[in-house]
Amino acid sequence: MELARELSDFLGVVEQRIGGALVDGDAGPGVKGDTLMEAARHLVLGGGGKRARPMLVRLFGDAVGVPGEKLVECAVSAELIHSASLLHDDVVDAGMFRRGRPTVNARWGNIVAVMSGDLILSTTLLRLVQLDARVAESALAVVSEMTRAAIAEVEARGVMDLPMPQLRYIAEGKTGSLFGWCGRAAALIANNPEAAQRFDGFGRHLGVAFQIADDIRDILGTDVGKPQYADLHSRTPSMPILLALAKDEALRRKLRDAWAFSSISTERAQELGAGIIATGAVDMSLDRLNSELEAALDRLGPFSSSAGGQELVSWARKLSAGITEQVRSKVA
């Protein structure tokens, strides 16, 4: 109970600091307000973000005995780097809704969305340089990895034979690398090289599992605030889609025909979604998710017995239990 209260207090401080990082800046002579920061606040504040990355920073820090006050800036940075990636992703995907609200690109246009993401990213990295050069350097490497994974995902659009290692590369780069950085940053502050390697590995496996969970929720329609079948509509290969195509040649032909057009009707998407579920691909995806989680827990090693490590293990188990329940309730 004490740890839960401390974590809640920590996230409250992080939330305040995030708000402070997104105040209007100097927009130029004669300009009223700061459009880029207004757009950033629209995405980041009050939109139902889970703050998973700040939470991970705190739990990783607890596992190596770093006081919470030394972790706040890293937690804020993790959330803002993530937010910048979302701003850019919504432009790439032409997304209209995020967390149940219009996206920045839907409300202000692509130019504002891209530049808002750039501004958040650059100011965040500058703050990290002032905190710790090692942490900032590792964050720069992660941003580079996230960018390469994002373009790999774009290049994979419409590819029905995407190799599983490439799909995993995309998931690890887009999600796992930043999860891993949450642990690496905390370990760097603690001057613990072993923890830095172990936490990075844990976070990367956890991030891949996190992405598989998103893929499953997309097919099941259980992702709150996001339209169902977004991957089918955007022609994005996901774990359930690829596993289903490998089992059902008729479904492959149907999807190839659907992806030949610029858009897919709601009825066609529902038909394809039902076909994917019928192959057992959702259950197979769940198995792969659990394999990633077990690999993540293995990477924790001796740190799994610490207070923060125990919470990391519990968080991973809850992810598995939650998505398993959704699968069981939707796939009869």
Rank of each mutant, 00 (worst) to 15 (best):
R5F: 10
E6S: 15
V13W: 04
E15L: 02
Q16S: 11
I18Q: 06
G30K: 08
T35A: 15
R41W: 07
V44Y: 08
G46E: 04
R58I: 00
G65P: 09
G65I: 08
G65H: 03
C74K: 01
S77M: 06
R99D: 10
N110K: 11
N110F: 00
V114F: 04
G117S: 09
D118C: 08
D118I: 02
I120R: 01
I120K: 03
T123D: 13
V129R: 07
Q130T: 14
L140H: 09
L140P: 01
T147S: 15
M160T: 15
R168Y: 14
G180K: 00
W181C: 09
A190G: 05
A195L: 06
G203T: 11
A213S: 10
D214V: 02
I216Q: 11
R217Y: 07
I219A: 11
D223E: 15
V224M: 11
L232G: 01
S234A: 15
M239P: 01
E249T: 09
R252S: 14
R256K: 14
D257S: 11
I264P: 00
E271H: 10
L272R: 07
A274P: 01
T279G: 10
A281R: 12
V282Q: 05
L286V: 08
L289E: 12
L300F: 00
G308Y: 09
L312V: 07
W315S: 12
A316P: 09
V327E: 04
K330Q: 14
